[in-house]
Amino acid sequence: MITPAQLRADAGQLAAGFPALLARAQHLVASLNIGSHGRKRAGVGDEFWQYRPAISGDSRSAIDWRRSARTDAQFIRQMEWQSAQTVHFWVDSGASMDFSSDVNLETKSSRATVLALALAILLSRAGERVGLLSDPRPAKSGESQIQKIAQTLANIGDKDDYAYPPQKALPNGSRAILISDFMGEWEPLVQAISKTADQNVSGCLVQVLDPSELSFPFKGRVIFESMKSSLNFETLRANSLRDEYIQKLAERQDALRSLARKSGWRYYTHNTDSAVQSAFLWLYNATEQGAAR
């Protein structure tokens, strides 16, 4: 079993290779008074406001050297203050995520968990509030919140074969990152995702699959059994099922892609024999760029 410390160490190592990320899609400009237009303030944001003279204690990395070169003084480039973004994660806790077709491959659950926690670390470092859909407590930023998320993800209890995103009231304009194999029954999945998106929440669907689930390399006599043994099927000619399986998988992926598009979300497929950095980079870009156009 992965310990919270090991999980966080793996995710932290992955996150260290990328710059801190601001969730830009739906920043809300803060208002000092209800009903009035927000006044500009210095803070975390991506809109330039003004230059100010550098003072003792300012980091050298914060100095705008091009502006400072015009005079003998040093200047700091200040950005307009913007409200922090809230991002909730759901990592599928179903037993189907514990599958791996090779002892040298990590499980889908392990890959999904590290991806979610790595992005949570980046967002939290940038001042964003992060949380889990399965946690009734509000999303927060900071080191203690990351530890709580790691603890929760590392201690998922007894599971059914398939799980579905839980319902939680989310802040208007926030985001949700759902990571799963999305192999469960279709209707409960659609209802769960649609109810989340209907709260004016943008997000991403990240489908994590084992390479055998993409290629169906089975031949001859095979007994297919779900991780909890609730489903099983025996065939003497597994290779004869390949074309039908590949077609069904393509239909499920097309349906997920369509569901994401209709909800203004983004969809991505990642397999566990690919470099984890590829999926993390996609999540980085997806979170930065916002909903698919």
Rank of each mutant, 00 (worst) to 15 (best):
Q151E: 08
V114R: 12
S180T: 03
A120D: 13
L117V: 08
L170M: 13
K195D: 05
K195G: 04
Q85P: 12
A197G: 04
A163H: 07
Q191V: 14
A169M: 06
M79D: 05
I179Q: 08
D158E: 14
Y162R: 07
E80P: 00
Q199H: 09
P166D: 12
K108P: 01
T86P: 03
I177L: 05
W81C: 01
Q78A: 03
G184F: 02
V91M: 07
I179V: 04
M79H: 11
H88F: 09
V130A: 02
S83P: 00
F89S: 06
Y162S: 09
D102S: 15
S83H: 11
D181M: 04
I146A: 01
I121W: 08
P138W: 08
V87N: 05
E143D: 02
L132F: 12
V91H: 06
P165N: 10
Q78N: 15
T107I: 07
G173W: 15
Q82G: 06
E80H: 15
G184D: 02
T86I: 03
K108M: 13
L115I: 14
Q147K: 04
E106I: 09
Q78W: 06
S83M: 11
I146H: 02
K195E: 08
A139M: 06
Y162C: 06
Q167L: 07
I146V: 10
R77P: 00
D198K: 13
W90Q: 08
H88P: 00
D92C: 08
S134D: 10
G157R: 08
A126H: 03
F99N: 14
S174I: 13
P171V: 12
S180P: 04
L133E: 10
L122S: 14
I156D: 04
S134N: 12
S93N: 12
Q167M: 08
L132D: 13
L178G: 05
S174F: 09
T113F: 06
L132N: 14
M183W: 13
T113I: 01
A95V: 10
E80S: 15
D198Q: 15
H88G: 04
L133R: 15
A126P: 01
G173Q: 15
F89P: 05
H88C: 10
P171M: 09
Q82W: 12
N155F: 03
P171E: 13
K168C: 09
L105H: 01
S96V: 11
S101N: 15
D158N: 07
P188F: 15
H88E: 02
T86Y: 07
G184A: 01
A84M: 05
I193K: 01
N172H: 03
M97K: 04
W90K: 03
S144M: 14
I76H: 05
V91L: 09
L189H: 00
Q151M: 07
I149V: 08
Q147S: 01
K168G: 02
L122P: 10
S194N: 03
A139Y: 10
E185V: 00
L170N: 11
S101A: 14
L189W: 03
L117C: 05
W90Y: 11
A118M: 01
Q151W: 05
L170E: 09
S93Y: 04
L178Q: 07
R125I: 03
T107Q: 12
A163G: 04
S100K: 00
A169D: 06
S109G: 10
G94I: 02
R77K: 01
R125F: 11
T152G: 05
H88S: 10
T113K: 13
S100E: 04
Q145I: 11
A120Y: 03
S109C: 07
D160R: 09
